[in-house]
Simulated assay, not measured.
Amino acid sequence: MNTSSPITVHFEQPFLERLEQLARLSGKSVAEIVELQTKLQLGWRPPTPPLSPEVQALKGSLPLLQQVDYKTAVTEAILRKYGA
Score class of each variant (00 low, 15 high):
His10Ala: 11
Ser5Thr: 12
Val9Lys: 13
Glu35Arg: 15
Leu22Pro: 00
Lys28Leu: 14
Pro49Gly: 05
Val55Glu: 14
Thr38Val: 15
Lys81Tyr: 06
Gln67His: 07
Val68Lys: 04
Thr3Ala: 08
Gly60Trp: 02
Pro53Ala: 10
Leu25Asp: 08
Val74Met: 13
Val34Trp: 02
Glu12Thr: 10
Arg45Glu: 12
Leu64Val: 10
Lys28Gln: 15
Ala57Thr: 05
Glu32Arg: 15
Gly83Met: 08
Pro46Cys: 01
Trp44Gly: 08
Leu36Gly: 07
Thr8Ala: 08
Ala73Trp: 05
Leu42Glu: 03
Gly60Ser: 06
Pro46Lys: 06
Leu51Gln: 11
Gly43Leu: 06
Leu42Trp: 04
Leu51Asn: 07
Ile78Tyr: 03
Pro6Leu: 07
Phe11His: 11
Leu58Ile: 00
Thr38Arg: 12
Glu54Pro: 01
Gly83His: 01
Tyr70Val: 12
Glu12Tyr: 06
Leu36Asn: 14
Gln56Cys: 03
Pro46Glu: 13
Arg80Tyr: 04
Glu12Trp: 02
Ala23Gly: 05
Arg24Thr: 06
Leu16Thr: 03
Leu36Ser: 10
Thr48Trp: 01
Gln67Arg: 12
Leu25Gln: 11
Tyr70Pro: 10
Val9Ala: 14
Gln41Thr: 08
Pro53Thr: 00
Met1Glu: 14
Tyr70Trp: 05
Ser5Met: 12
Glu54Tyr: 13
Glu20Phe: 04
Ser5Glu: 10
Arg24Pro: 00
Ile33Ala: 08
Gln41Glu: 11
Ser4Asp: 02
Pro14His: 09
Ile78Gln: 05
Pro50Arg: 11
Tyr82Phe: 15
Glu54Ser: 09
Lys28Gly: 08
Pro46His: 01
Leu42Phe: 07
Ser26Trp: 00
Val74Asn: 03
Leu64Met: 13
Leu36Phe: 09
Ser4Tyr: 06
Gly83Leu: 09
Arg45Trp: 01
Trp44Gln: 05
Thr8His: 08
Leu64Lys: 03
Trp44Ile: 07
Glu76Ile: 00
His10Val: 00
Ser52Gln: 06
Pro63Arg: 12
Pro47Val: 03
Phe11Cys: 08
Pro14Phe: 05
Gln37His: 09
Val74Trp: 00
Gly27Asp: 08
Pro63Glu: 12
Met1Ala: 14
Pro6His: 06
Pro47His: 09
Tyr70Lys: 09
Phe15Pro: 00
Val74Ile: 15
Phe15Met: 07
Arg24Val: 10
Pro53Ile: 01
Leu79Ser: 05
Pro14Lys: 04
Lys39Leu: 14
Thr38Ala: 14
Phe11Ser: 04
Gln56Trp: 08
Ile78Lys: 10
Thr48Tyr: 02
Phe15Arg: 11
Met1Arg: 14
Glu35Phe: 04
Leu19Thr: 02
Gln56His: 10
Ser29Asn: 11
Gln41Ser: 10
Ala84Phe: 03
Arg24Asn: 07
Gln66Glu: 15
